[in-house]
Amino acid sequence: MPDILFEKSFQINKKDFVHAGEASISAKNLLKSLQMDAGMIRRASICAYEGEMNVVMHGGEGHLALAIEKNRIILEISDNGPGIADTEMAMKKGFSTASDKFRELGFGAGMGLPNMKKNADEFELSSRLGEGTRVRMAFFTDAAV
């Protein structure tokens, strides 16, 4: 296990659309002030935002945790929400369980998780019904890949 050089966790609030996205913005700004690789920051912020929106829409209370290691960063988005019944289906493009209310807001196109997988270098989704969901992603500096 490589050493974790820096860790920081940001709170995500259930159904709080007014502040949705703030955890990702904080994480992104933290990475920016470290002036880490721009491409990696871009990919990580896209994933952080998608993940945060998933928690706000479907999940319960959640966290966005950021860990920085020597050559990579790890993002972990977790919540204590209802969990995902069929993780395989959830990974399919266009599949969504978002309610009409959220679709009207422009979300729920079924692209969130596939988009996160596309942008992350490593992606792992685990979920238990009634307990919650966890998405763990790793990003390597573009130069190192």
């Binding site: 996205g21 990702s24 913005i25 992104k28 871009r42 912020s45 896209i46 952080a48 935002y49 998608e50 988009n115």
Partner: peptide, 8 residues
């Protein structure tokens, strides 16, 4: 601008 940076 924050949102555009996050891919929106």
């Amino acid at each position: 601008l924050e949102k555009i940076e996050m891919g929106l």
